[in-house]
Simulated scan of single mutants.
Amino acid sequence: MDFMSYWQYSDMVTKALFFILLALSILSWVTGIIRIIQSRNLASTVADDLSAQIQAKQTDLSTGDVATRRLVIEQALLKHIGRYRFASERGLPILGTTAAIAPFIGLFGTVWGIFHALSNIGSTGQAGLAQVAGPVGEALIMTGLGIAVAIPAVVFYNLAIRINRRVMYHANDRAHELLAQSMTSSTATDIAKNI
């Protein structure tokens, strides 16, 4: 059985579900590839970017006590880490939703196709294996399409989550180093002023 005979046999509901699955597939592939590329770029630049942001803050905080400097630096680090987290999670809801709903859309298409096939069999009065196997087999194609759409979305989602964890690890690790360095240099500066 080829695709054209299946397409001619299907009704508007099945065709609409096919186009929904096709759109979800394209959307998840594009989103997944973009998300992986952007997350990898973010992972490679997050530590240097945090360092540059804190260096810019250090010059503004040369006058002030240690507690104030520490508070301002901590808040700046938390703000930038929150921005990195937000940037790294863009597109993940699309991938997660596609992975969750695509099999059910395919299953609905299968149920609809089987109902449609059984309705046709009931109207013709012929219920032999040849009359049942073809339409039911065609209906099962929708389940396969739903799974074929969901699997890449799950893979992209898991890859992006893994890379994003690495981004947050690098960001938090660098933030702790920067905070310790700024407090060490602030303490040394305060001791030098008091001498």
Rank of each mutant, 00 (worst) to 15 (best):
T110D: 00
E138A: 06
S186Y: 05
L78K: 09
A127Q: 12
S28T: 04
E177G: 10
V136T: 01
G109P: 03
V13S: 07
G134N: 11
Q8W: 05
V167A: 10
I94R: 02
I191C: 06
D190N: 15
G96W: 03
S123P: 11
E177C: 13
L21G: 03
G91P: 12
R165F: 08
D49I: 13
G64N: 05
R40P: 05
T14C: 03
M4D: 07
A99T: 01
D2P: 07
Y6M: 13
G146D: 03
S44H: 13
A192V: 04
V46F: 02
T68R: 10
H116T: 06
A150M: 05
Y6W: 11
D173R: 13
S186T: 14
S119L: 02
Q131S: 15
F19T: 05
T98H: 08
D65W: 05
H170P: 00
S123N: 12
F19H: 04
G82F: 04
K79S: 12
R165Q: 15
P103D: 02
Q75I: 00
P103R: 01
G137C: 00
K193T: 06
I26C: 04
G125W: 15
T45P: 05
E138R: 03
I114S: 00
G122R: 10
F3P: 03
V155I: 07
I26F: 04
I34S: 02
A16V: 11
I151G: 10
R35D: 08
L21C: 01
G82Y: 03
D65E: 09
Q181E: 15
T184Q: 12
H170R: 09
G128E: 08
R90M: 08
M12S: 09
I121Q: 00
F86T: 14
I34K: 07
Q58A: 07
A127S: 14
Q75K: 06
T68C: 11
I73T: 15
F18V: 08
I33D: 10
Y6C: 08
I141F: 02
S62Q: 13
H80N: 11
I163Q: 06
S25D: 03
Y157E: 08
T45D: 02
I34R: 09
M183C: 04
F115H: 00
F18D: 03
I81M: 06
W29P: 10
A133K: 07
M1Y: 08
G134I: 08
V30A: 05
T59P: 03
A139N: 00
K15F: 01
V66I: 14
M1F: 04
I34Y: 08
T98D: 13
Y84R: 06
G122A: 13
G125N: 13
G144S: 08
S5N: 13
T59L: 07
I26Q: 02
L118Y: 02
I161M: 11
P135L: 04
Y6F: 14
R70L: 15
L24T: 05
A139D: 00
V167F: 05
A47S: 15
A99Y: 05
G96I: 06
H176W: 10
A87M: 11
V167R: 07
A160Q: 09
A23L: 06
E89F: 07
G82E: 10
L61I: 08
R85D: 14
M168D: 09
D65C: 12
L21Q: 00
I33R: 12
G137Q: 01
V167M: 15
V46G: 01
A150L: 05
M1I: 02
V13F: 06
A188P: 05
I101G: 04
F18E: 01
T110V: 00
L77A: 07
N120T: 14
Q53G: 14
M12N: 12
